[in-house]
């Protein structure tokens, strides 16, 4: 596609960066639409407007937000929901590890940029550099800035549109009297499954997913709501340590 070695080709680089920015905005629009459903589901789960918007601004990680809201909706202790959300966010730390050398961050800037480290911005940044997830190239590797442009274009547009989507979805859902009437209680599991599906490659994820679901269902009649989800997390920890 691009002539990566021709360093002085600034025109080509500019055109490429424009295209990457366009792609990033596209991802932002798609994510914003999904923000609409988060806003509506959060209100239907009895969070108020301010709490719903605070989650999108401050937590800014879709799966974690859905997890917190899902536990609250099922009548669980909100703090158990927060714990599930944090466990889900652990992957963002590993995204940061891969991104740090590419972004060349130093000092207090990191504190701001860290908030943009999410699935979408990481995927777009790594896709530009064309090197697979596994290779560690140290601090070398993004001399034409493509990865950085992908990260910021995607991260910023997702941030703006996710929050806008959340606000609109939440405001619209406030007029509902009974969320069940609109089937919003079925929207919650559908959202979880849609988030899960890209991760179901190979046999191990299926084994883990089915075991985790069985553990959670088996515990749900006895354990306080929210605890079955955390017990399911233990399945991942055990499998991770066993290293299979």
């Amino acid at each position: 596609m691009s002539t990566r070695r021709a360093a002085p080709n600034f025109a080509g680089m500019k055109a490429r960066h424009r295209k990457i920015v366009g792609d990033g905005i596209g991802v932002g629009v798609a994510t914003g639409a999904y923000g609409l459903s988060f806003g509506a589901i959060s209100i239907a789960s009895h969070l108020n407007l301010a709490q719903t918007c605070a989650l999108s601004l401050l937590m800014f990680s879709g799966a974690s937000q859905f997890a917190l809201v899902g536990v609250v909706a099922s009548g669980g202790n909100p703090l158990a929901g927060a714990a599930s959300a944090v466990l889900l966010g652990a992957r963002n730390a590993f995204y940061g590890l891969r991104l740090a050398p590419m972004l060349g961050l130093r000092g207090p800037k990191r504190a701001v940029v860290a908030q943009l480290v999410i699935d979408e911005s990481t995927a777009m940044a790594l896709a530009q550099t064309g090197r697979g997830a596994e290779r560690d190239q140290g601090d070398e590797g993004d001399e034409d800035g493509d990865g950085r442009v992908g990260f910021f274009a995607t991260g910023l547009s997702v941030f703006v549109l996710w929050n806008l989507g959340t606000l609109l979805g939440a405001v619209a859902a406030r007029h509902l009297t009974d969320p069940k009437q609109l089937g919003l209680d079925a929207a919650v599991p559908a959202a979880f499954l849609a988030l899960l599906s890209p991760r179901m490659k190979g046999r191990q994820p299926w084994a883990i997913a089915l075991t985790a679901a069985a553990v959670a269902l088996a515990l749900s009649p006895f354990a306080p709501a929210g605890v079955p989800v955390l017990a399911a997390a233990a399945v991942a920890v055990v499998a991770g340590v066993a290293g299979r």
């Binding site: 799966a63 859905f66 997890a67 899902g70 536990v71 909706a73 099922s74 009548g75 599930s84 466990l87 889900l88 652990a90 992957r91 730390a93 590993f94 209680d185 079925a186 919650v188 599991p189 979880f192 499954l193 988030l195 899960l196 991760r199 179901m200 191990q204 994820p205 883990i208 997913a209 089915l210 075991t211 985790a212 679901a213 069985a214 553990v215 959670a216 269902l217 749900s220 009649p221 006895f222 709501a225 079955p228 989800v229 399911a232 997390a233 399945v235 991942a236 920890v237 499998a239 991770g240 340590v241």
Partner: peptide
């Protein structure tokens, strides 16, 4: 573990929110 946590948590959340009502 960080790769597997989302799989386990999302599957558990999906199962619970589809198939349970309270306890």
């Amino acid at each position: 573990i960080a790769d597997l946590l989302p799989v386990a948590l999302l599957a558990a959340l999906a199962a619970l929110s589809t198939l349970t009502e309270g306890h």
